[in-house]
Amino acid sequence: MLGKFIVIEGLEGAGKSTAVATVSQWLEAHNIPFIQVREPGGTPFAEALRDIVKGDWQEQVTPQAELLLMYAARVQLVENQIKPALAAGTWVIGDRHDLSSRAYQGGGRGVDSGVLQQLKAFTLQDFAPDFTLYLDISPAVGLARASSRGSLDRFERSKAEFFTRTRNRYLEIAAQEPSIVVINAEQDLPLVQADIQQALEQQWPE
């Protein structure tokens, strides 16, 4: 049997790492083999692109350049890590995937949705996650959490309006696609973890 691809999405500070750990524990409890990957990154080439995307440059990084780098890293990860794992029956937990580009570059940066669809068709074709958990959090709360972890990267230093547009696009897409479940990430951690576990149980009843 093919493995399943579960993706964790959310703004900075939403608690994606904790959610990945929660999903990992659920899979372990059900004796399901899995790997964890992140975007951008996950392969040597994609990790190099991650450093470029998140780094500081003495020039403006255009939305077009940012978007192309994201999809370049994504297709490397999908073809070299995710697809082989799924074909072997191993489940994959992804820290971000294509929905991030639709929200951040589409909503936040204002890139036309048609361009996003064309890039997705060219790089990923019909490949898509089986299930997505979107951790919803207000930009103010999320960025406060992110700031408490230390210095912020280029994305995290974006203006509040950027994150508001990004969040709105996340919620807009989630309302249209049944494979996406919205989790209230502003709750206390035990409640967030319980909601994630419940969503997994409903998606894959024992």
Rank of each mutant, 00 (worst) to 15 (best):
L143C: 04
E156S: 05
S151K: 11
P139M: 04
E156T: 08
R149D: 05
R167G: 10
P178V: 11
L116I: 09
L143S: 02
D112I: 07
Q118L: 12
L133A: 11
K159V: 08
P178I: 06
F163W: 07
R145P: 03
F155D: 13
V115R: 05
L124G: 07
F127Y: 08
A174H: 07
S179Y: 15
L119F: 09
D136A: 15
L116W: 10
Q176T: 12
I137R: 00
F163T: 01
V141K: 00
V141S: 01
K120N: 12
S147M: 12
L124I: 04
D112F: 06
Q125V: 09
F155Q: 05
R169W: 12
F162V: 02
R149I: 03
D126P: 01
R145S: 02
R154H: 14
A128T: 05
D136G: 05
K159T: 07
A174K: 11
L116Q: 14
Q176F: 02
L135S: 03
L133C: 10
I137H: 01
R157Q: 13
E172A: 08
S151W: 03
T166R: 02
R169H: 12
T132W: 02
G150P: 00
A140I: 04
F127C: 15
P129S: 15
S151V: 09
S179N: 10
F163M: 03
S158L: 11
I173W: 12
S151D: 08
R154Q: 04
L116S: 09
A121V: 02
L116A: 09
R169P: 11
P178K: 14
F122Y: 13
S158F: 04
D130W: 05
L171W: 01
S138I: 06
I173M: 09
S158C: 03
T132C: 11
Y134D: 03
L119I: 10
Q118Y: 12
L116K: 10
T166A: 11
T164S: 11
A160Q: 15
S147C: 09
L133T: 05
G114K: 13
F163C: 03
L133M: 06
R149P: 00
G150E: 07
E172C: 10
D136Y: 05
S151H: 10
D136Q: 08
Y134F: 07
I173G: 12
L116R: 11
G114T: 13
S151Q: 15
S158R: 15
F127P: 00
A146W: 00
S147Y: 00
R157G: 01
D153K: 12
A121P: 01
D136P: 06
Q125T: 09
A160R: 15
L124M: 14
T164I: 13
R149W: 02
R167Q: 08
V115H: 09
A175R: 13
A174S: 15
A175F: 06
F131Y: 14
E172W: 07
S158G: 13
V141G: 02
G114F: 15
F122K: 04
L119A: 11
A146T: 13
Q118A: 13
L171Y: 04
L171T: 08
S148G: 00
